[in-house]
Design a protein around this nucleic acid. Sequence first.
RNA 1: GGCCCUAUCGUCUAAUGGUUUAGGACAUUGGAUUCUCAUUCCAACAAUCCGGGUUCGAAUCCCGGUAGGGUCACCA
Length: 562
Amino acid sequence: MHKQIMENEENKKIAELLFPDIHETLEDLEAAYPPRNLPEGATVTRFAPSPTGFLHIGTIANALIAERVAHTSQGIFILRIEDTDKKREIKGGIDEIIHNIESFNISPDEGVMSEEVQKGAYGPYLQSQRLKIYAIAAKYLVSQGLAYPCFCTDEDLKEIRNVQISQKVKPGYYGQFAKHRDISLIQIQQEFSQGKPFAIRIKSDAKVNEKIQFKDMVKGSLTMAANDVDFVLLKSDGYATYHFAHPIDDHFMHITHILRADEWLPSTPLHLQIFRYFGWNAPYYAHVSPVLKMDGLSKRKLSKRKDPEAGVKYYTQEGYSSESVITYLLNLANSNFEDWRRTHPDLPYSDFPFRIEKINNSGALFDLRKMQDISKQVMAQMSSQQMYDMYLTWAEKYDPEFAELIKKQKEYTLQIFSIEKDQQARRKDIYAWNQMHEYIGCFYDELFEKLPFNKQLFPEFLSGEEIKDIINAYLQVIDLKKPSDQWFNDLKAIAAKFNIAPDTKTFKESPAGTYKGYVGDIASILRVAITKRKNTPDLYEIMKVMGIERVVKRLQETKDLL
RNA sequence: GGCCCUAUCGUCUAAUGGUUUAGGACAUUGGAUUCUCAUUCCAACAAUCCGGGUUCGAAUCCCGGUAGGGUCACCA
């Protein structure tokens, strides 16, 4: 009993020696960050990326999930930046993260809003600015004998590891291998006098073969070995490790649900240990599997180095609309989203009742084809104005010349976007903005002139002279004010003059040689003449949008090329 | 290697011990419609990893195998 009291005294002295400038206590922190006043059932989630300069599509998926979980429960979604690894940090990384999640409509209610601005009463939200909080927490653990300073150098740790390898035991700083575990005040003072740097390690209380149980909202009930490693809490540079920052930040920010990547699952016992040491309630955990890719015969995570589609940049550059990416990711996370979308085509995705429990508990292969299909559907649903706005935003960055052109001819462009767009949807021709230039380029005279003219596109059974005659014949009757069926009758009439069948059926059912072709060939000639392309949307609508002057001009010019 | 997780058409998945001839979507193939193409519509193809057990009954529960994934840092 007497010994216990002496130890307690010694621990307090060690804490003072290690953290002489820290005078605040855990109670002060609790008072500074009181419980949130939220409606029953509201969840508080966070997205906590590191500013390493590369945003993975899976990271966006997790951000989206966290945002949906918070906002479908009237809760709060926080952006916290985990910038505790100074070596990997990249300049401008924070702004890039913010810019990216915003472009996917993922808006934090609280946290880091820009490099300079933070919002909310539970900050700071930049881990590099929370060092004092970590120190207060670490000092508490040391004073309780639950953590201790470790003066090991990299070489010391390497040596421990080598011994463990030769003895064929588990590597790590634990038990008998944790050489500073029972370091005394006097020893610490000695190390201190030599100016040695130190890290703070947890003093694990795990018993041999001890198991812990916890429930994960995605993976279900889990039994894992209790952590027996004296892992690092505070690095020698004063920054917290993830393992320490996570419980502390999420406790004082009153996060209710931890949504994070699957790879954290094995370290959850460490985090639970910390919550227990502080006597705090642990939050709910939900570990989300990563997006995978086939590599030869095995699956692996989408790789930053090998797979362009791993980066968010890929989608923004190619011009997948944010709605398309969100739809795909939501679909991957809650597979019933697809059905919901079909039955509620007009509702915003935010109305979808997202459920953590529905998240799949194993990784899915990324399917670009599926994504493209979704993207086509999303684009087909857009109004012409929406399409114009979104495309212009993209083009201004990635195709500035064309952006100028469509800005100058906004009304014309809107009309082009409305071709074959009835009440419900438009044609599903393209899935990304980078296909748009080629798709609609021929409408603009400036670009049309530059397009190569290819005689081969005309029906090969007609001579240049015959094609000229057909164009002339059409020029005589051209009238775009007629309804489309009458317009088409004109084409049939021309067909008749040139010994061409009025429809496919007649052509096919007549004996060989009766007709040279069918009315589609007439349309084809006009199509090629005014677009220089073989495949286009509805010819009649194209002509109407282009206007009679432009159509006549292009038909005239085509004759000169034959 | 230790610990953990996972296993249904090629891909994403549904089926919560009996509603099942295992459903849908993407992809693929064929057909119908259309002035081309794209659509749209119809159809076809196609799966419960293997072996045991529990049960009247198993994709579903249990055990073992196999395969894949994750993780074992003063990175996050």
